[in-house]
Design a binder for these strands. Structure first.
Lengths: 149, 149
DNA sequence: GGCCTGTTGAGACTGCGTCTCATCTGTGTT
DNA sequence: AACACAGATGAGACGCAGTCTCAACAGGCC
């Protein structure tokens, strides 16, 4: 259980490996790595982990700072938390089952460079988020399978 | 005053041109078209427009549906509202002065297509947001002027 | 002017996230 | 193994964005 990459990351960064943190790491892992804060809270309460709201948010904050997790705002306004590797990347979210995948640059860098050149902005940061249906949800859906943007 | 594009859009869509809506349209325009809900609220109150919180949010919701405005989530977690044209596009936000510019596709479409092909997802929607310094903030800033991503 | 329906404001309400503070617990030290 | 201390925690107050309800109001068409 301590081999959890989340626990490892906390340890490496010099954070204490406390009970609540280990419990949350396990919970997060069991969620396939993505969830809303509300879900995590409800589950922690249901399992009687004795972990307070404040601790949950604090831990998520730490994990975000460690780049182990990322907070994503869906177009619906919902906010989800996603486990990810500490490297620049973007997310692909299945709007039916909630599955998320990481995607790399895929040529975006040059698009951003082009925009900076055209507008005169100095671009420091960018976010790209894609939403759609993952392969398995596509399979179980009778609708069109074409790719659009 | 009624020539405001916001008022026009409301009218064209069959919404009533009420006092509160005209007042808000004027306020929004005076903000250079971008602001947080809190700013709009405070200003409406300060100017004693007699416009309630509910009406403000309702109006923003309508304007968003009409694609006259867009809601953007900044990396900081702050949520801003931006006036924009009703066409698919993306936003460039100056992290110092808050200025926003619209940007078109700029080659992003092919990046998205490439990602869809690679992952097997059917991509229905995407968001690209860029953050950095606008030309005038760059000018008044002694720091580096290089373009990075 | 009058009517009808869409719109409004006040304020209750919800829910996320933050903050405070007294208490507790990892963890390095001895 | 016990100690000490800083970091971590939980309970609950708090703040704030956004939603909802509902009675009252006011555009816009007659």
């Amino acid at each position: 259980m301590d081999h959890s990459p989340i626990v490892t990351a906390l340890d490496r960064a010099g954070y204490r490996l406390t009970g609540p943190r280990r419990a949350l790491a396990a919970l997060i892992a069991s969620h396939d790595g993505h969830f809303t804060a509300a879900e995590l809270l409800a589950e922690a309460r249901a399992k009687r982990l004795g972990v307070g709201r404040a601790t949950i948010f604090r831990t998520l904050e730490v994990l975000e700072a460690l780049e182990v997790m990322e907070r994503l705002d869906l177009p619906s306004g919902e906010r989800i938390y996603v486990v990810c590797k500490p490297a620049h990347h973007h997310h692909l979210v299945c709007s039916r089952c909630g599955r998320t995948d990481e995607i790399d640059d895929a040529g975006l860098r040059s698009v951003v460079g082009e925009i900076a050149r055209r507008t005169g902005y100095r671009v420091d940061e960018h976010r790209l988020e894609l939403f759609g249906l993952c392969p398995s949800c596509r399979a179980s859906q009778p609708g069109p399978t074409s790719v659009s943007a």
